[in-house]
Design a protein around this nucleic acid. Sequence first.
DNA 1: TCTTAAATTTAGACAAGGCTAAAAATAAAA
DNA 2: TTTTATTTTTAGCCTTGTCTAAATTTAAGA
Lengths: 218, 218
Amino acid sequence: MFSLAEENYLKAIYHLESKHKGAVSTNAIAEVMDTKPSSVTDMVQKLADKKVLSYVKYKGTSLTDEGRKTAANVIRKHRLWEVFLVDKLKFHWDEVHDIAEQLEHVHSEELIARLDKFLGFPDFDPHGDPIPDKNGNVKPTEKKLLSELNKKQHGVCVGVKESNSDFLQYLDKKNITIGTKISVLGKEFFDGSMVIQVGRDQFFISKKIAENLYIQTN
Amino acid sequence: MFSLAEENYLKAIYHLESKHKGAVSTNAIAEVMDTKPSSVTDMVQKLADKKVLSYVKYKGTSLTDEGRKTAANVIRKHRLWEVFLVDKLKFHWDEVHDIAEQLEHVHSEELIARLDKFLGFPDFDPHGDPIPDKNGNVKPTEKKLLSELNKKQHGVCVGVKESNSDFLQYLDKKNITIGTKISVLGKEFFDGSMVIQVGRDQFFISKKIAENLYIQTN
DNA sequence: TCTTAAATTTAGACAAGGCTAAAAATAAAA
DNA sequence: TTTTATTTTTAGCCTTGTCTAAATTTAAGA
Ligand SMILES: [Mn+2]
Ligand SMILES: [Mn+2]
Ligand SMILES: [Mn+2]
Ligand SMILES: [Mn+2]
């Protein structure tokens, strides 16, 4: 059994590993955990003792299979609760993260199994992120960023990269949500900005927006 | 905002106050919290500083209005989650307490408001205990213990006093649940045992059983 | 009332997590 | 290859919540 703090560290390291290849640096962890590098060192040494990650002084850490599975399980819980909050309690998709952040630490295998069933065994959370299975496996999906598309290409929005409130509220204003069809009408190579079509509307979006929307094309 | 430990102390003191009149003793708190009296003294002094209870050395403690409201709110959350677990996730009523014990500490007013609505604003939890409203008020119900009934009296089971697994499973075996009609066919004054009728079945119960079943007669 | 027993509090420690300041190791620059 | 800058770790201290052992207070018995 892992403490709340330990679970949060494992989750953070899991996400960092999936973004950048190679060992995760102490400073990177401190950054996302919003804590000091010295605190990270302490915790990482403790987690290494517990065999959930391997740690080499000054070189960084990487999760063991055990650690990866544990982290994936916390993420599984987080995302299932987010589905519950949106689908059942009718929360808006920009309101659920902080609550799920607490719910993810409730310990009960049975609870999650039943919640999963109650929700109809969802594959994705409200932000389009995949929900790991009981064993910590995530089926790989072929999605790309909207910013990778070129003029005249189109696809369906399947997720968001960053999911902070401001961004999600912007998407709502533009009627973009998971499942929305998006077509690229024009693309400016100088700044990466685009003109896209969503439903009947055509409008301009910045590169930053395009880099935070996942699209599935096929 | 109160810590998990503080919330549990407040809840325990709230329950103790409702059972025995007068100030709650340090030892009584230690007993139900399964901790040492010295630890209780420390915590109780801290909670007194926070104005949620009044504490007089060697004399005991009692909740302030503020403390009572805070405690009732934790209990409200506990019971609403129990309703969720039984009604929605189809848990059995003897399996939900420990999970609710964790869920009750998730902080979000909005979450509880929406959960309440999702559950249809229930008045009682799966064990027949009343759910306090947002302001910490519980409507008083006129219920008595089955052991207080005499021969030929009858009523409807509206709750259980102790709700440990063994007892709840016994009740299931006997087909007794919230809403079940129970008639007293005989009562032995020597040991308080009874013969009762439940549906078509008639059987013997000990005084201990009768003292843990709440009945509404009218 | 005097003495013993029970309840309660105080003193001193400990583990988990976290912080700051200083030291050590590694990476980058000259 | 030195020197300097950056990253990371160590050392020492703090807070929360808990515990044991010892001291105090209150209650009970003679
Ligand atoms: Mn989230
Ligand atoms: Mn999400
Ligand atoms: Mn309960
Ligand atoms: Mn209950």
